[in-house]
Design a protein around this nucleic acid. Structure first.
Lengths: 341, 341
DNA sequence: CTGAAAGCGCTTACAG
DNA sequence: CTGAAAGCGCTTACAG
């Protein structure tokens, strides 16, 4: 590996001058500049990022902290983020918080010790208070309400999305629509719940049917039995996320309850798996990849514009209609299924 | 952020001595050592990795290069690797090769410019020849035959796994078993194909039914029509990986062909999605998470033992029997399904 | 056992 | 416009 000194020597200038052309900063005569660029090219010289980092307190690397990369929502996010970062000369450190015990603030320490230039937070396991202390670190927070001073928050209009989902179920003829809501420390779960409630409230003849879930496949599945016992005549389920909807689908399938004939099911997120289930799952699609991309772009912008202040971005969701909410003649079906009450 | 000098001053020693206790290297009197450790603790001092890196040509970070983190095989791998790395004080850089055009060797440059300590390769998109040149970089290669001098290769016994899959289909009564094989530049695809062939060859009454696939869901689905036209009486499909098996399942479902009653389906890999399909998919399970963990462990070992030489590790697969290969009375089924020949 | 000095490979005032 | 010098925060021979 050649160093800046090698380049300088070969070009007959000082290291400082080479550094100036490298950073495109300060005056360099056109003549020397060209000479230096040629030498750099010929030698295949690349600046050592570690040395540069030490001098500039910079690393050209970003961190992406997710709950669990194994949750299908995150890989797509990560890919979008990585792509955008990469195009701007940054690389990406990945951190999972789930199953890492109390080590979460170790990730925060890392930010300092490795001069991580900025961080994307997509995990509720990180303590907001700790985050707040890092006010000098450019930060973008995903899908999570927060009162951090100097961060960009990117989320989807969950309230609107949930309304769309619920209205869609109404529109295909569902009249007993249950909602499986996610953990309420998660603001997205909260907003989705509110969206559901709003539609129920504003539509005559409907009433709230609520059951708590934990945003996992198994959690969704476990919910079903409970739901059917209490409300044997439900004809639609709006799950707070796709994972739970997938669990619901599995369970209904085991119970020989037909989707969408007996019960229609709608999820939320738009993860890829929704196209793999049988029947395919109707869902409220978030632009996941785009969110990752945008997060990285906004982050890099903030790196270049420190203390930019608070910013909130809300993206639109899109109703993706699939087999699990195909319109069927519900009055017939309901009769044959619910004979209880 | 306090520096080593702050610690030294506060402990009344030189920076060199502090460095010695930090690195647990060289002699330090017990008395000073204790004093220094106390100061370090009290100040909450943490060594700056960038500075340390520049001095030691080290970064305490690893790179994981995958084809596409969006492929469900990789997140689990990444998680295992990250966990193991994390426990050893390393962090992880993630790189996707797919969709990155010719920029792949940029990843390799990164290794040098950021003093990446070691790299796990899980992508065929990286040129083996380029890899070979990096003989000084500790490296572990996953699921890929290679002749790199100084690397650890970790893979699964694909040949054996494919035999197990094929035999399993035979054991539930299948007699016309097709294999959708993956791209043959991929050594795992090759080995799986060989395993299939071996069983067909050694079992009387069976003959090879082969069709090429591309290891994707859509690719698997597209294969089906073709297969059914040529061999309307097949009663079992062994797909070269789970993704293709999932595609097959979707297509068969669309065609109202029953799994497992008409055709039994078996995949390979053991990705989580196989539990989400309907019916759930029988598969040859690889210990994916463990492979990631092991990869990181071996890599770190190599970082501490440079030029350790070539090493190959082969892990066992496990047949995971699920609904898609439930035993049914095939002679009946076949009749009702294939009326052509 | 310990400290002063040099060095890792850059960048950035400063002086000219 | 350019170079010498100092500095980023560590580590590691070297001398004592």
């Amino acid at each position: 590996m050649s160093t800046i000194r090698d380049v300088a020597k070969s070009a007959g200038v000082s290291a400082a001058t080479v550094s100036r052309v490298l950073n495109n900063k300060g005056y360099v005569s056109e003549e020397k500049k060209e000479k230096i660029e040629k030498v750099i090219h010929d030698m295949g010289y690349e600046p050592n990022q570690i040395a540069r980092g030490l001098a500039k307190k910079t690393s050209k690397t970003l961190a992406l902290i997710v709950t669990d990369i194994t949750n299908p929502f995150f890989p797509e996010l990560a890919k979008g983020a990585e792509k955008a970062a990469y195009l701007n000369g940054y690389s990406f450190l990945l951190g999972n918080t789930k199953g890492m015990d109390n080590h979460n603030d170790d990730y925060v320490k890392l930010l300092k010790n490795k001069y991580i230039d900025g961080v994307i937070i997509a995990s509720h396991d990180i303590d907001i208070e700790i985050l707040k202390e890092q006010e000098n670190t450019p930060m973008v927070v995903l899908e999570m309400d927060n009162d951090i001073e100097n961060a960009c928050t990117i989320k989807v209009d969950n309230y609107d999305g949930a309304m769309t989902a619920t209205r869609h179920l109404v529109s295909i003829g569902c009249r007993k629509i249950a909602h499986i809501y996610g953990p309420q420390y998660d603001s997205t779960a909260k907003e989705r719940l509110e969206g559901y409630k709003a539609v129920i409230r504003d539509t005559s003849g409907l009433s709230e049917i609520l059951v708590p879930g934990d945003f996992t496949i198994n959690g969704g599945a476990e919910t079903v039995q409970n739901l059917l016992t209490q409300y044997p005549d439900i004809d639609g389920i709006f799950a707070g996320n796709d994972l739970m909807a997938i669990g619901v689908l599995k369970k209904l399938n085991q119970l020989k309850i037909k989707v969408p004939e007996d019960i229609a099911v709608c999820g939320f997120d738009g993860i890829f798996m929704t196209q793999v289930t049988n029947p395919e799952l109707t869902t409220i699609e978030q632009p996941i990849y785009r969110m990752g991309e945008l997060a990285a772009e906004k982050l890099i912008f903030r790196i270049n514009h420190p203390f930019y202040g608070k910013e909130s971005i809300e993206l639109k969701t899109k109703l993706q209609i699939r087999e699990s909410t195909r319109k069927v003649n519900r009055s017939d079906q309901k009769k044959s299924f619910s004979d209880g009450d």
